[in-house]
Measured scan of single mutants.
Amino acid sequence: MKVIFLKDVKGKGKKGEIKNVADGYARNFLFKQGLAIEATPANLKALE
C-alpha cells in the first residue's frame, strides 16, 4: 500500500515521502499512530 508519511518513522521513511509499505503495517500502526495517510489521488493533490 502506498502511504504518505506525516512524520519521520525510523527505518521506514521521512515526513513528506511516499512509499510502499505492507498493508497491515499501514493500517495497524502508521494510520492509528497518525504517522501516515493513504496515498490516494486526493491526498497526493493536497500534499502539493
Rank of each mutant, 00 (worst) to 15 (best):
A36D: 00
N28A: 09
K14M: 14
G13Y: 12
K19R: 14
D8P: 05
A36W: 01
E38G: 04
M1A: 06
V3A: 01
L35R: 05
A46F: 11
Q33A: 09
K19V: 12
A46H: 11
E38I: 08
A46R: 09
F5R: 00
N28G: 09
G13D: 02
V9N: 01
I37W: 06
K10P: 15
L35A: 06
N20H: 15
Y25H: 06
K2Y: 15
N20Q: 14
F5S: 00
L44F: 04
K45A: 12
L44E: 05
F29V: 14
K15A: 12
G24M: 13
F31W: 03
G24E: 15
F31P: 00
N20L: 10
G11S: 06
D23Q: 13
Q33W: 15
D23W: 12
E48W: 08
G34Y: 06
G11N: 09
L6F: 03
E17N: 04
A46D: 14
F5D: 00
A39P: 03
L30G: 00
K7G: 05
L44G: 03
Y25V: 08
D23M: 15
G11I: 01
A22I: 09
K2S: 12
V21H: 02
Y25S: 06
M1W: 07
K14E: 10
K14N: 10
V9M: 06
L6V: 04
A39L: 05
A26N: 04
T40D: 05
D8V: 04
A26E: 11
V9P: 01
A42Y: 06
N28R: 10
M1S: 06
A22P: 13
E38V: 05
K15G: 04
I18A: 02
E38L: 07
K19A: 09
A26Y: 14
V21W: 02
A46Q: 13
E48I: 12
N43W: 04
V9K: 01
V3T: 00
L30E: 01
K7T: 12
F29E: 12
Q33E: 13
K14V: 10
A36I: 09
R27M: 12
F29M: 08
L6S: 02
T40S: 10
I18L: 07
I4Y: 10
Y25K: 08
I4M: 09
K2I: 13
I4N: 01
E17Q: 12
K14S: 10
K12Y: 14
E17P: 00
L44Y: 04
D8T: 11
E17R: 02
A39R: 01
V9H: 04
K19H: 10
N43E: 06
L6T: 08
I4R: 02
K19L: 10
D23A: 15
K15M: 10
D8I: 03
K2Q: 14
F29D: 08
N28S: 09
D8Q: 05
G13T: 03
G13E: 02
K32Q: 12
F29G: 04
V21D: 02
A46G: 10
V3W: 01
G16T: 02
L6K: 02
G16R: 03
N28K: 14
A36G: 05
K7D: 09
L35K: 04
L44A: 03
Q33D: 06
K15Q: 09
E48V: 11
K14Q: 11
G16H: 09
G16N: 07
V9D: 02
V3L: 04
K2T: 14
G11F: 07
G11R: 06
E17D: 13
F31N: 01
E38D: 05
V21K: 00
K7W: 10
M1N: 05
V9W: 04
F31H: 01
E38S: 06
A39G: 05
R27K: 14
K10A: 14
E48F: 12
T40E: 03
G16S: 05
V21N: 00
L6Q: 03
N28F: 12
G24N: 15
D8K: 05
L30A: 01
F31G: 01
K10R: 14
G11V: 01
G34I: 03
K12W: 15
E48M: 12
F31K: 03
A36F: 01
K7H: 14
I4T: 01
V3G: 00
L6P: 00
L30K: 00
P41R: 10
L6Y: 01
K32W: 07
E48D: 12
R27F: 12
G11A: 05
K32F: 08
F5H: 01
E48P: 06
Y25Q: 06
D23N: 12
L47P: 06
A42N: 11
K2A: 13
K15V: 09
P41D: 13
I18S: 04
I37S: 03
I37D: 02
G24F: 14
R27Y: 12
F29L: 09
Q33F: 15
N28Y: 13
Q33S: 10
P41L: 13
E38Y: 06
L47T: 09
K14R: 12
N43T: 07
A26Q: 08
L47Q: 09
A22V: 09
G13F: 14
A26M: 10
R27W: 12
T40N: 09
K12A: 15
N20M: 15
V3H: 00
L35F: 08
F29R: 07
K19S: 10
G34K: 09
R27H: 11
A42P: 07
L35N: 03
G24S: 15
V9R: 02
V3N: 00
T40G: 04
E38T: 06
I4A: 02
P41K: 09
G11M: 06
G24T: 13
F29H: 11
K12T: 11
K12R: 13
K32V: 14
K10D: 12
F5A: 00
F31I: 13
I18K: 03
G16V: 01
T40K: 03
A22S: 15
E38W: 07
L6M: 08
G16K: 02
F31T: 04
A36T: 01
K10Y: 14
E17W: 04
L6I: 12
D23G: 13
N28M: 11
K14I: 09
G13P: 00
N28H: 13
D8G: 07
L30W: 03
G16P: 00
A36R: 00
K10Q: 13
L35H: 05
A42V: 08
A26G: 05
G34H: 06
N43P: 03
A22F: 11
V9S: 02
K7P: 00
V9I: 09
L35W: 11
G13S: 05
K45V: 13
F31Y: 07
N28W: 10
A26P: 01
A22Y: 12
E38Q: 10
V21S: 02
K15E: 08
A42K: 08
K15W: 05
L30Q: 00
F29N: 07
A26K: 03
L35G: 02
K19E: 04
G34F: 09
V21Q: 04
E17F: 03
P41A: 13
T40Y: 03
K45Q: 14
A46W: 15
P41W: 11
G13N: 03
G34W: 05
T40L: 04
T40W: 03
K32A: 14
K2V: 13
I4L: 11
F31M: 10
M1G: 05
K45Y: 09
K32R: 09
G11E: 05
G13Q: 02
V21A: 03
K2G: 05
N20R: 09
G13K: 01
K7A: 12
V21P: 01
Q33M: 15
P41N: 08
V9Y: 04
K10V: 14
I37P: 00
K32M: 12
K32N: 11
E48S: 12
D23Y: 15
E38K: 07
A46Y: 13
V21G: 00
A46T: 11
G34N: 13
G16A: 02
K15D: 02
A36Y: 01
G34S: 08
M1I: 15
E48L: 13
I4S: 01
G11T: 05
D8M: 04
V9E: 01
K2W: 15
D23T: 13
K10M: 09
K45F: 07
L44P: 02
M1H: 05
Q33L: 15
K2D: 10
I18F: 04
G24V: 12
I18E: 04
P41G: 08
K2N: 12
G13V: 06
Y25F: 11
K19T: 09
A22T: 12
E17S: 08
G16M: 06
I37Q: 06
K7N: 08
A22W: 13
Y25P: 07
A39E: 02
N20V: 15
K19Q: 09
K7Y: 11
F5V: 00
V3R: 00
N43I: 09
A42R: 07
F5T: 00
K12P: 01
A36N: 00
F31Q: 03
A42T: 11
N28V: 08
G24L: 13
I4E: 01
I18W: 02
K45L: 10
E48T: 11
K14G: 06
E48K: 08
R27G: 04
A42Q: 10
I37E: 06
Y25R: 07
I4K: 03
G34D: 07
L30R: 00
D8F: 08
E48G: 11
K45H: 10
L6E: 02
L47V: 09
N43M: 06
K19G: 07
D8E: 09
A22R: 14
G34R: 07
K15F: 06
F5K: 00
G24D: 14
V21I: 10
K15P: 05
A42I: 07
V3I: 10
P41V: 12
A46L: 13
V3K: 00
A26D: 10
D8S: 11
F29Q: 07
N43F: 06
K19W: 07
I4P: 00
E17A: 05
F31V: 09
L44M: 10
M1R: 08
P41S: 10
